[in-house]
């Protein structure tokens, strides 16, 4: 989780932001599994990650349109 937050401080592109959030959430998932092992919570965090990956697609598409590439 800490490494995710640290990466966020140095981001320059949308890719880096979403990847940092993914790393951050993966850290949380591991801690959560150790703490409580709630299946629904893990599923929902998984859903958040999949949705963020989809968002990454939108972000990169818009960014590349903006840059004209």
């Amino acid at each position: 989780m800490l490494s995710g937050v640290l990466f966020l401080n140095f981001y320059h592109t949308p890719w880096q932001v979403v990847l940092s959030i993914m790393i951050f959430l993966s850290g949380f998932e591991i801690i959560e599994y150790g703490l409580e092992n709630s299946l629904l919570l893990l599923l929902l965090i998984g859903l958040v990650k999949v949705s963020l990956a989809l968002a990454l697609f939108f972000i990169v598409r818009r960014e590349s349109r903006r840059m004209g590439t």
Binding site: Y11, V18, L47, S51, A55, R66
Partner: peptide, 29 residues
């Protein structure tokens, strides 16, 4: 999940810059 849905809404239209939305999703997460 509401915040992520909102991302799709904002990235559909060509805006000037992404910084505000990226900070939004980062802080919400």
């Amino acid at each position: 999940l509401v915040a992520i849905l909102a991302l799709a809404l904002f990235f559909e239209l060509p805006g000037s810059s992404n910084t505000g939305v990226l900070r939004f999703i980062t802080f919400q997460t």
